[in-house]
Design a protein around this nucleic acid. Structure first.
Lengths: 113, 113
DNA sequence: CCATTTGCTACGAATTAAGTAGCAATACTA
DNA sequence: TAGTATTGCTACTTAATTCGTAGCAAATGG
């Protein structure tokens, strides 16, 4: 399979020719559905089809691509129960978790104006 | 200008037909360079050209598109000194700031295996 | 004035994502 | 144990996004 666009630390990515970790993560997470997949997997392991339902309207092509990228990045893995967050993935989830509450407040103000 | 793909709370976005705030934010930030722009603007106001330098290799087309989206979302704004984070944008930056340290650790383990 | 710098826009090419169909492998059922 | 359903994809075509380069109008500087 083509591996060329897998954001890897130390290799050129969007935002950093030298592959700074934060830019690697931004490149990885800054792709369609990536953060949503991590968000949903926090609720426990999911099969491919279930993940497809959770992410409304995601195409199998894109889901499969994201799964492979996130797996190579060791943020998710596949178990007998389905796809699940790794320890790294869970840590990452915990970091982005506060976005949920913040986003609700942001949305409220968005409407106000 | 075309407004149709501006992720807006309450309107269908990638990941949520009903436009849940967190999915709106994921749609907004899950586009190329979006998080990188916010990251760089934390260092203070930047002109268009300077932002272009900070974000290595970003095309003016994409930068301009992202700027418009983030401006409509009230995360950034334009002042006499250049583009800068709004209060909302600064809050958001503070939330994603820990990703920097985490990413460095993640990258370390990435190499280890 | 005249030269720079700035903030873009235009536009074609390349890359990424969407959408739909369907198939091979596994799990379940009668 | 043969038949049925479910799962995890792949194939393929079309649509949308992003890139890359050129360059121009407006503001700024000398």
């Amino acid at each position: 399979m083509d591996n060329s666009s897998q954001p890897t630390p130390g290799k050129p990515v969007r935002g950093s020719k030298t592959g700074q970790p934060i830019m690697v993560i931004f490149d990885l997470l800054g792709r369609s559905w990536a953060m949503g997949i991590i968000w949903h997997l926090n609720n426990g392991p999911s099969t491919f089809r279930r993940l497809q339902e959770y992410c409304e309207n995601i195409s199998p092509t894109t889901l499969n691509t994201r799964i492979k990228e996130l797996t190579k990045a060791k943020l998710i893995t596949r178990t007998v129960d389905g796809y699940t967050l790794t320890d790294h993935g869970l840590e990452l989830f915990k970091l982005i978790h506060p976005l949920g509450k913040w986003a609700r407040n942001w949305a409220k103000n968005y409407k106000d104006t």
